[in-house]
Structure formats: C-alpha cells, structure tokens
C-alpha cells in the first residue's frame, strides 16, 4: 500500500478493467480486485461496494457468466468467465479507450 491516494476511476472504466482481467482466465471477485490492484501497481483499488454490483451488471448484460467452483484454498467461490459477447465488448471498449486517451492526451499536450 503506497502513500499515494488511489486513483478515482472514471465512470464505466471498472467494467473495462473487469473484462480485461477475466480475459486472461476465469476468476472470482476477490481475485479480480487483487489482480486489478496488482496490475495497476496499487494505483487502482477496487471498492467492494462497486465491484459486486458491477459484476452482477455485467452478468446481466451477458458479457460474463458465473459458475461455482473451488478456490485455491478449497473454499466454494463464484468464478466469472468472459462470454463471447463479453470478449467482443472488451475489444470494442479497449479500442475506444485507446482512441479516447490518445485524443485526450493530444489535447492536453497541445496546451
């Protein structure tokens, strides 16, 4: 845990991060939050308060699906996996994200 205060995620970014994390392999909620934290070098910390509602929302949209399985320490855990629809969505959103950051970056650099 660094001293820097964690970044605030813009609206909708959490969905993208979850999808990206799940693109590697199916994971349970706890692991998803840990992975994101790790991958962002602790810059992004996912609030449980938004993680689970987000997972349920994504599941409802059919981008991810859930299955119960055993965790590493043999607890019953709910594993989420990317669906075909979710993978397409991930690609689309990633492209859009890159375009956006590029554009925003350009604007900021100009000034």
């Amino acid at each position: 845990m660094g001293d820097e205060s964690p970044l605030l995620l813009p609206q909708g970014t959490l969905d993208l991060l979850i999808l990206r994390t799940l693109a590697v392999e199916p994971q349970h909620g706890w692991a998803i939050s840990q992975r994101i934290q790790l991958a962002s070098s602790d810059m992004v910390r996912v609030q449980q308060g938004s993680l689970y509602p987000a997972l349920h929302r994504l599941e409802r949209r059919g981008w991810i699906k859930a299955e119960w399985g055993a965790s590493e320490n043999n607890r019953r855990a709910k594993y989420y996996a990317l669906t075909r629809k979710g993978r397409a969505e991930l690609e689309a959103q990633t492209t859009a994200w890159h375009k956006l950051t590029l554009a925003v970056g350009q604007v900021l650099d100009v000034s």
């Binding site: 609030q47 449980q48 308060g49 689970y52 509602p53 987000a54 997972l55 349920h56 929302r57 599941e59 409802r60």
Partner: peptide
C-alpha cells in the same frame, strides 16, 4: 473494510436488473 454489506447486496440486486 468491506463496508455496508446490506447496501452492497441491495445494489447488486438492483444491478441484476431485473
């Protein structure tokens, strides 16, 4: 650390859409 568990449940329910 987890916070208001009922609130999260409630919100998850809402997100389930439904």
């Amino acid at each position: 650390a987890f916070g208001a568990i009922e609130a999260i449940k409630e919100e998850s329910r809402d997100r389930r859409g439904v």
